[in-house]
């Protein structure tokens, strides 16, 4: 029962923080709320016995990606409510569309007959040992390829963000 309660707590935090990301006026608050949201998702990972992923998640998202975002926001000096107001009609459309999408997705999930799992089959799938074994045996090549991807992304970012001399 305790785990149910924990789940609901975490879920509430996740949803609330996610909504705050969307509705915050200032980008810097959005970033902060998103970090909070990521922490709650990391909590979900722990609940699901995916300890390795939980740690990686916090390191990559909260530690790296969000810091990068924060830097960008500060670098571009976006920390003011400069965003012009959208019309109420646009806002209503966005919210209604989001809600409708939620309903449609739910309906789709209901009808896909997942053979819903009541409880986990085994509990040790998320351990570092297991994930590591998978990663370095079956997924060896993709894993190595990620380095290529990173190199490409790195060079790409440098080229894009560099001050263009003759433009």
């Amino acid at each position: 029962m305790t785990s149910d309660i924990v789940f609901f707590l975490l879920a509430a935090v996740s949803v609330f923080t996610a909504l705050m990301v969307v509705f915050s006026k200032s980008p810097i608050y959005s970033v902060m709320w998103l970090i909070a949201c990521f922490f709650s998702i990391a909590g979900h990972y722990v609940m699901l016995n995916a300890q390795f992923l939980a740690i990686v998640h916090i390191i990559v998202y909260a530690g790296a990606i969000m810091v990068l975002m924060l830097f960008t926001v500060m670098l571009l000096n976006l920390n003011k409510e400069s965003e012009p107001h959208k019309s109420i009609f646009t806002k209503a459309t966005a919210v209604i569309t989001g809600g409708m999408l939620f309903l449609v997705l739910l309906a789709a999930m209901r009808s896909t007959q997942l053979g819903a799992y009541e409880a986990p089959v085994t509990t040790d799938v998320g351990f570092v040992q297991k994930v590591g074994m998978k990663l370095f045996t079956d997924y060896m090549l993709p894993f190595e390829m990620t380095s290529v991807l990173f190199i490409a992304a790195m060079i790409g970012s440098v080229v894009l963000a560099k001050k263009e001399r003759n433009l």
């Binding site: 785990s3 879920a11 989001g98 999408l101 999930m109 986990p120």
Partner: peptide, 30 residues
């Protein structure tokens, strides 16, 4: 090892909800 976790359907609903919020954000913000 944490045992006795809630049924998986709940996770489905939660992630759907998060996804929809994301979509809504994309539509809402400029």
């Amino acid at each position: 090892v944490i045992t006795n976790t809630p049924p998986q359907n709940w996770y489905l609903v939660l992630s759907t909800l998060l996804f929809s919020i994301g979509v809504m954000g994309v539509l809402l913000r400029r």
